[in-house]
Amino acid sequence: RLAATIRFPEHGESLGWRVIFGTGPQAEEPSASRHPSAVVEPGRVAHGPWAPAPRSGEPCWAELAAASADERWTSAVGWEMAEGAYTLEGRAVSGRRPVPETSPEAGEWTCCLATDDLSRTLDRVRDLGGTVLGEDPTNPLGRAVTVADPDGARYALVEQPGGWGGALAT
């Protein structure tokens, strides 16, 4: 279930996950929505609100850090903004976490991965040379912790989200 990739960053890009989204019914050409931290491919992808619940290790949510709703995603992909989440056909597709425009993470996507046992997974992150950056007590998905791999690529781990977007799915 291809949902995200890791690749060497191009000039000016940060190291990290590149989330893959499918186009919606009103979307423009996928090339119009290329972004350093996310890619849009034609058709539906095998994750998201239409897919089965994520298994441990699979993406369970993606969140854009942005000062406001990014027109790139609402116009190019056909999403709408509703209650802090981008939606398509009435289903939550991804989140938007408000940050100041001057924030170094503004415009970056965070890929959230499901885990059955967060404590055990965090131990494994440390064992493999990764860093635990901090827990997010306000995450609507449930218990979530942001981590970085040994090269600094950031992502989040979410314990037993139950489905794409956790409670946001309903």
Rank of each mutant, 00 (worst) to 15 (best):
T74G: 05
Y86G: 00
I20N: 02
F21N: 02
A46V: 04
A153K: 07
P98L: 09
R126V: 15
G152E: 13
G84K: 04
C60V: 02
V99T: 14
T138P: 07
D136P: 06
G22L: 04
V93Q: 00
S75H: 09
L64F: 06
R55T: 13
P140W: 10
R34K: 12
A46P: 08
D149F: 11
A144S: 13
V93L: 00
L113H: 09
R55W: 12
T121M: 12
C112E: 13
V125S: 05
S56K: 05
A76T: 07
S119C: 10
A76S: 15
T74E: 03
T121H: 13
T74V: 09
V77G: 01
S31T: 10
A144D: 05
P98G: 06
E80S: 15
D151K: 12
V99G: 08
T74H: 01
T138N: 13
D70C: 14
A69M: 02
Y86I: 01
S37V: 06
A67H: 09
P54R: 02
A76M: 05
G130R: 02
R91V: 03
P30W: 06
P140I: 03
V132E: 15
W61A: 01
A51I: 08
L113E: 09
A144H: 05
A148D: 13
A53M: 07
A66H: 04
V93C: 00
P36L: 08
A106H: 15
G142P: 04
G22S: 03
T74W: 01
S56Q: 05
T121D: 15
A62F: 01
S75Q: 12
T74S: 11
G107Q: 03
E58R: 10
S103C: 04
E101M: 15
R124N: 14
E83Y: 09
D116K: 07
A53V: 07
I20H: 10
D117G: 00
G24L: 00
G90N: 05
D149Y: 13
D136A: 08
G16A: 02
P30C: 10
T138S: 15
R120I: 06
A69Q: 06
T87N: 02
L118P: 00
A32F: 09
E105F: 04
W17S: 11
S31I: 09
A69G: 10
P150Y: 03
A148F: 13
L88C: 11
A46E: 15
F21E: 01
A106V: 09
E105D: 14
S103H: 13
Y86A: 01
P140C: 05
A144N: 04
V40T: 08
G107I: 04
R120S: 11
W17P: 08
A46Q: 15
T23I: 04
T74R: 00
E105M: 07
T102E: 14
V40Q: 01
R124S: 13
G152H: 14
L128M: 14
L113T: 08
A46N: 12
A38T: 04
W109I: 07
E28K: 12
A53P: 06
L113K: 10
T23K: 05
S37P: 04
S33C: 14
H35Q: 03
G95V: 00
V145Y: 10
D70R: 08
M81A: 11
